[in-house]
Design a protein around this nucleic acid. Structure first.
Lengths: 356, 356
DNA sequence: TCTTATTTCGTGTACGTACACGAAGATTTC
DNA sequence: GAAATCTTCGTGTACGTACACGAAATAAGA
């Protein structure tokens, strides 16, 4: 292909200037006569210069801190996936001299979120990754960071009104739309049930809101007369949940279609398995170990999944390149694939999701 | 985290030896007293040395050639996806000082395959990537390369009896199994039709054979009395194909389930659209532009897809690390995810598949 | 014992980029 | 017109690893 790599030295020779000057131009660090700048630019153009990232990274002695703000979790919960992805992304970014630290907060506590933001502000990193829950505070934080020149990346969901460098995650509305299409199948039902999680606070602070909209939009397009029941479960109260579901299914024995928009479909799978229910059509989200098991044993039919690892990797990478080379990602809103998992393809997915 | 990176210099000081000796140990290049070797090893262990890949790659002046052997193609065919993935993977491997060249052959011509292999042998590269079609020749080639110390990576499909460094691709049998489960749906049919491509040569030289086995295995498990019709199409003969399908559907108006194991489901979609057929259930493979369109307009219901870009990237990466650092990939057979695409999630997939 | 091999090791340079330092030239100031 | 300031640029060193070259130390041969 190309005979040999073009280096700054070549540029310098071609422009009749020194390496130092070329370097100043490339990092537009000032202190260069306009005429010289032109010459360097021209030389770079004609010779087709490309940065040797290995040399650049080697010579770059700076060390960067990235701070990741996300909800806390216990074993097997959704945010654990994200947390694990961070480690993998950090390893991938070795060579950029980057370390990632995490600040977590209780996603159901507005107070803790504010605290977490304060903690972040009191020890500012060079870049921030955030999985946003509280809308207004996130917007405010984004402006604060913008002013400080600190780039921010959204993962998992985004707040459009905020000031951010990039987003890496699935399209929320469309994920609900997809869920609806999978749930209905070939013999459309008359009614379905949506199991939700009790949650206090403003409705706009729920990232799955857009997902619900996508879902209902699909229904009004295709089955306007369908009725949806809403039932509320609790994350850690099995007894309560069983009571809720017992009551519901006693009153509505005909309902066979179940949807949930958060990652806790395993709460329902648990119930289904325990009660030995059959012929249900359950659609849920996110590749938790318990959800995988539910798909394997047939309690859940479809799992809609996002590529957490890839999202994190790309988010960290975007920040790394911004920090090291000053390059802005080519696309700001990176909507990533929604994967459909069923019993027959989940094994090979779940083996891989840890690495890719 | 770690206070500071450990370098060879640190190792040298700790071991009471020079950098040169440490280097010789690390590359076991010989010429080192056993006692010294021990000291160095110990120092590396206690200090926790990790190679600085940037520096290593920078100092490594070698240039590597990787040769990629794959079937030729015309616009919009499956192998074009793979070909495009090569370019992307090559760009990803800049920094390893690697260039990839491609040798193509007509997949229906055994002769051309042999020629391609000869061409490869006459100008040996430092590593080989291969998408195998002809089984015996591939095995033979693999032994030849093994002897020369040239690593080989399989993508897309593999020949288990060959001698290879790693495989990156979907599990073939399982992809057929999955296809069957998607095809049957909720109201199992009495018969289905499989459209195939006319192909001469040994049956074992067809990489989709395992896929067909997975498919039929699913059927015998779940619907043993189902009957399968086999019809044969030609890649580039629309008129002939239409005649075949006209005849078939005239004789079997009740058949609504269609499967194809290669990437040319668009041939059928084309027919379906042209004839205005409705209520068919069609399952196909691979994310060709024409197949995407067929899913969008409803002619194809499910598309089973592999991540060509990722497979190539990982294949190239495995070879690059082998060449540059002598590291063997942690897993030899890397079975990658099978993605299910429907109308509601294909848009975000197809936007991404070029990059990821 | 002295030369000649052989083994073992240290030094020096290169890779391409980043950036500090300071020299030379140009401009301003009184 | 000399001193002070500012602009513009070249030189030198560092980053951590790879590898060639040759020096010192040891062993072998006479």
């Amino acid at each position: 292909m190309q005979a040999k790599k073009v280096t700054v030295k070549d540029i310098a020779r071609q422009a009749g200037l020194s390496i130092g000057t070329v370097d100043r131009v490339m990092h537009n660090r000032g202190g260069v006569a306009e005429e010289s700048r032109q010459k360097v630019m021209e030389a770079m153009e004609t010779l087709g210069y490309t940065l040797n990232t290995n040399a650049s990274l080697l010579a770059n002695k700076k060390h960067y801190r990235i701070c990741c703000l996300l909800p806390s979790f216990t074993d097997g919960e959704y945010w654990e996936l994200v947390y694990n992805a961070i480690a993998s992304a950090e390893k991938d970014a070795t060579g950029y001299n980057i370390s990632i630290e995490t600040i977590t907060y209780n996603q159901f506590s507005h107070e803790e979120y504010v605290e977490a933001v304060e903690k972040l502000k009191s020890n500012l990193p060079q870049a921030v990754i955030i999985a946003p829950i509280y809308r207004n505070e996130t917007i405010e934080l984004s402006h604060f960071l913008k002013e400080k020149g600190i780039p921010m990346v959204f993962i998992d969901s985004k707040v459009s009104e905020a000031d951010y460098l990039a987003y890496y995650g699935i399209p929320m509305w469309e994920s609900g739309y997809l869920a609806a299409s999978l749930l209905l199948g070939e013999e459309p039902p008359k009614s379905i049930v949506n199991f939700r999680i009790e949650r206090s606070g403003s409705i706009t602070d729920n990232p799955t809101l857009a997902r619900r909209h996508g879902f209902t939009d699909y229904l009004t397009e295709n089955l306007p007369q369908l009725s949806i029941y809403n039932e509320f479960l609790r994350p850690y109260d099995r007894e309560h949940n069983f009571a809720v579901m017992d009551k519901f299914f006693a009153e509505h024995p005909d309902i066979r279609h179940i949807i949930t928009f958060n990652s806790r479909v395993h709460l329902i799978a648990d119930y289904i398995t325990a009660r030995g229910l059959k012929d249900l059509r359950v659609v849920g989200f996110d590749i938790l170990d318990q959800n995988i098991e539910a798909v394997r044993n047939g309690a859940v039919k479809y799992l809609i999944v996002q590529r957490t690892q890839v999202q994190l990797r790309r988010g960290v990478n975007a920040l790394a390149e911004w920090l090291a080379f000053g390059t802005t990602p080519p696309v700001r809103d990176n909507y990533m694939p929604m994967d459909i998992l069923v019993r027959e393809n989940i094994n090979f997915y779940s083996e891989m999701y840890k690495e890719y």
